[in-house]
């Protein structure tokens, strides 16, 4: 049975660059994270960053994977650089908890081959390539998903019973360092009188320190 908390509980397998950075971003948004990583030195480094509980070991061993608490988790993201291991982890996860949302990192040769077996497939090399295209063209417009920097620019759906739902922007006390840019229709830039309608999507920008608070206001 999945956790009933307001924040998601996410298991990340592989604490390399991709897994660790993913964990950092999710932690900034206030979610609970467990990372499974086999390299002891890497484990210490992740523990130092204080973004996730760390389990040391091979996640494809059910004995190790169990320790991350799949029965109370909402999502498992297998992000190691070993595609077969990632697939194995997703299969084990689904077996242990059929409600788990599974995310699998894949590589160039495998591509979308496993898309049917898991909920989402990601391919970091392709994302990097898109980023490289952005940089090479150095245009004035950059796609949101690939913005670098520290600012988190995101599209947020307002939660039905979130504190900010149904309120005008002026009525809400936002922390310093965040900005509601627009509603997603693109029809207008947000103003003081913009109302945050529950269920609708808005583009927001925030500095890392206040992302969690902003999400709590907008998502509940």
């Amino acid at each position: 049975m999945p956790a009933h908390g307001k924040d998601l509980r996410i298991i990340i397998v592989g604490g390399g660059e991709v897994g660790f950075r993913t964990a950092q971003l999710l932690d900034e948004r206030g979610h609970d994270l467990v990372i499974i990583e086999s390299d002891p030195e890497r484990c210490q480094k992740i523990a130092d960053a204080y973004v996730a509980t760390v389990i040391e070991g091979d996640a494809t061993l059910p004995d190790i994977f169990q320790q991350a608490g799949p029965e109370t988790a909402n999502v498992v993201a297998a992000l190691s650089d070993d595609t077969l291991a990632n697939l194995a982890v997703c299969m084990i996860a689904q077996r242990l908890n059929p409600d788990l949302h599974t995310v699998m990192r894949t590589d160039a040769e495998t591509g979308e081959a496993h898309a049917e077996l898991v909920d989402s497939v990601i391919y970091p090399q392709r994302a990097s390539a898109l980023l490289a295209v952005n940089a090479v063209l150095s245009g004035d417009v950059r796609s949101l998903e690939h913005a670098m920097g520290v600012l988190d620019i995101a599209e947020v759906r307002i939660g039905a019973d979130a504190p900010a739902a149904g309120k005008r922007l002026t009525e809400i006390s936002f922390p310093k360092g965040c900005l509601v840019v627009s509603d997603v229709d693109g029809s207008s830039i947000a103003g003081a009188d913009t109302v945050l309608e529950p269920g609708h999507r808005y583009i927001v920008a925030a500095e890392p320190e206040v992302v969690q608070e902003l999400m709590r206001l907008l998502r509940g």
Binding site: A3, H4, G5, K6, D7, D161, A162, P163, A164, K167, E171, I172, S173, F174, P175, E213, R216, L217, G220
Partner: peptide
């Protein structure tokens, strides 16, 4: 409240005061 072990409003921050 955030873990939904107490009623929902107790786990929410106030929109007016943060």
């Amino acid at each position: 409240g955030r873990e939904n072990q107490l009623p929902n409003p107790l786990g929410q921050i106030s929109a007016t005061f943060g």
